[in-house]
Design a protein around this nucleic acid. Sequence first.
DNA 1: GTAATAGTGTCTATCAGACATTATAAC
DNA 2: GTTATAATGTCTGATAGACACTATTAC
Lengths: 217, 217
Amino acid sequence: MASSYVDSSGRSLADYPRPSVAVDTALLTVPEETGQLSVLQVRRHRDPGWALPGTFLHEGERLIDAVQRSLRDKAGVVGTSPRQLHVFDDPRRDTRGWVLSVAHLDVVRPDQLAGRDRARTRLVPVDRPGMLPYQHDEIIERAVSELRRRYASAPDPDHLLAEPFTILQLRRLHQAIAGRPLQPDTFRRKMGLQLTGTGTRTTGTRGKPAELYLRER
Amino acid sequence: MASSYVDSSGRSLADYPRPSVAVDTALLTVPEETGQLSVLQVRRHRDPGWALPGTFLHEGERLIDAVQRSLRDKAGVVGTSPRQLHVFDDPRRDTRGWVLSVAHLDVVRPDQLAGRDRARTRLVPVDRPGMLPYQHDEIIERAVSELRRRYASAPDPDHLLAEPFTILQLRRLHQAIAGRPLQPDTFRRKMGLQLTGTGTRTTGTRGKPAELYLRER
DNA sequence: GTAATAGTGTCTATCAGACATTATAAC
DNA sequence: GTTATAATGTCTGATAGACACTATTAC
């Protein structure tokens, strides 16, 4: 493909102007405390306020590595699986120059955020993200839609629950992501078919003990 | 956001190395002659063979404008609506340097391709795209999946048919995109509800005249 | 026993697939 | 009339929502 880009004037790759490329990430999780789908934000460096974690792409670096580096450096989060969402390409988006930003979605278990720097980061429910610079609110919207689409038909595809888990735990997670209550019986019937029962049950809980399940089918 | 990227060493935006950014497009259409979902390919400049149309992003240019420029210059196609699919970011993908490529999907009516340069371009069914450089086959796969998803539930969302049209015309289009036959009666029931009948009917055709419909609901 | 939660039975509405039937044109 | 296509009727099976009911635990 490269050579097909060389135009009739014979200009080579190095002759073309190049934009800076950044990554920005909507890191979503469901904290135990609130049970609400929330997004990680970090303090901005120069300006007051909060923003999504982001960084510039380093030379020869892959986008996914830049995302993981920014999450490690800015929030102490490791072991994530970012996915691309969209490229924001308005040339006037950044006042300091020509910057393309590749928005990402990442989803983590709350325990993966345990060691985060609480002075420099915060977790905010996705439906009240506060004032954010640039199009970070749009990134959150895209991230939430994508996550809801993923969780609509499959049980916990992003492995937010530690195995084994009960169907109630699974349903609470899916409700947090969907942002609305889900029918207990319908949910059980749809998702239960995609789970493997362990035969063991919870103990010490109120009511009838629930069976514990594994994701693997 | 920009200022939040400045790291603790105080490096500014211009100090970061920058990749070249390209766009590549899977331009899909359904030619009258074959009735098969097909993708536009252009002759490569230096190497033998064919590739998807692409170009480098010009300074301050938006991605969508680069896509439209490449389609105009390489295939004489105008008036399209490209959509982003994915960023290909393997630093070793292009032997001549560090190039990010933003893959796009574009869908056009066959008449929009009437004036194309037939010596430099060809239309190939998407299921037999031939040998393509880099990850252009993957771009086609993503483009087709996305198009099938869009056409699964709505009647001709990308306006490939000139209005008014019959349900048979609509179903043939959807079959070409789905790559499989669709039940006439089920299709009519699902899509018919989302169309507006004009009251007028085809004339001069064999069999019972078909009603003509508009997309608008 | 009561309260609470897990899990199942079952009715209804909706919808896709499949097939039959009716309607209306060209010939 | 015959043939071809459009449009509708209707049966069946699958599934979601809704509600009732049974099962098993803590207390």
